[in-house]
Design a protein around this nucleic acid. Structure first.
Lengths: 125, 125
DNA sequence: TGTACATATGAACAATTATTCATATGTTAG
DNA sequence: CTAACATATGAATAATTGTTCATATGTACA
């Protein structure tokens, strides 16, 4: 190995302990990663972005994104399980809409981040 | 197929057009998904969460998370490329810290979402 | 100059995940 | 009850991605 110990550990040992204590529970961080995983797919981001504008049925979304009904339905299930969208049934048709205010904040902050101009440190030459 | 058309399309045709026009560019949505993908991994969420508390070197993080130096280094690269962390070199040691204010908002909104009590619609019996 | 050490990186493997295809469920209209 | 339709879902496949292992880079110090 050789990965286990390094002089650096000794130097920052206390700091590591302090940080460890301040960090949220392991389980919370796991759930948080699961949540962001849901945002981390182009199809789902597009669906969310569409539902930002209006309530839509499954078929609308499929047409809008040019994808199969099945693919959309599978992704809507993921979004539902993460409680990001809610659904309303009207006869055969199921309408989906956003379920949460946090989504808008997360989404917009994400957009702001990617639109931010790059500093020197990040320049890709 | 049979997925291509449905009566539903005809009903909401106008709505689809309106939504399509309002949605951000395809490319932006792709980048956004890429950004969230970076948040969507337990190891990286833990790293971010640790850097919330203090600037740390690679080795500190490896010890803190009980993972190999290599694994951490690979993940730090991903975080760097997404401009979520910045680094500062001091001799052999490289210190990492958070690079962006949006991260904190995104992170906290995410936490609020997962900590939110579940409504009836989402109850898992 | 050479050794020790912190970090970075390439390749390979294992695990996860999105989409497709086929089919099931549930609702409406005849 | 049956046919038509919107949506959901299971299984399989294809693509993506995280970690490991081995090794490279670059800095400090003797």
């Amino acid at each position: 190995m050789g990965d286990e110990f390094c002089s650096c550990d000794i130097l920052h040992e206390n700091l590591i302990e302090i940080v460890k204590k301040k960090m949220p529970q392991e389980e919370k961080l796991y759930d948080l990663a699961e949540l962001f995983k849901v945002f981390g797919d182009t199809t789902r981001v597009k669906i969310i972005s569409a539902l930002f504008e209006a309530e839509l049925c499954v078929c609308d979304i499929a047409v809008l994104l040019g994808m199969s009904q099945s693919a959309i339905s599978h992704q809507l299930r993921v979004l539902r399980q993460a409680r990001l969208v809610k659904h309303r049934k009207e006869g055969k048709v199921v309408f989906y809409s956003l379920d949460d205010e946090h989504i808008k904040t997360i989404f917009n902050q994400g957009l702001e981040h990617i639109l931010e101009p790059r500093g020197f440190e990040h320049a890709v030459f």
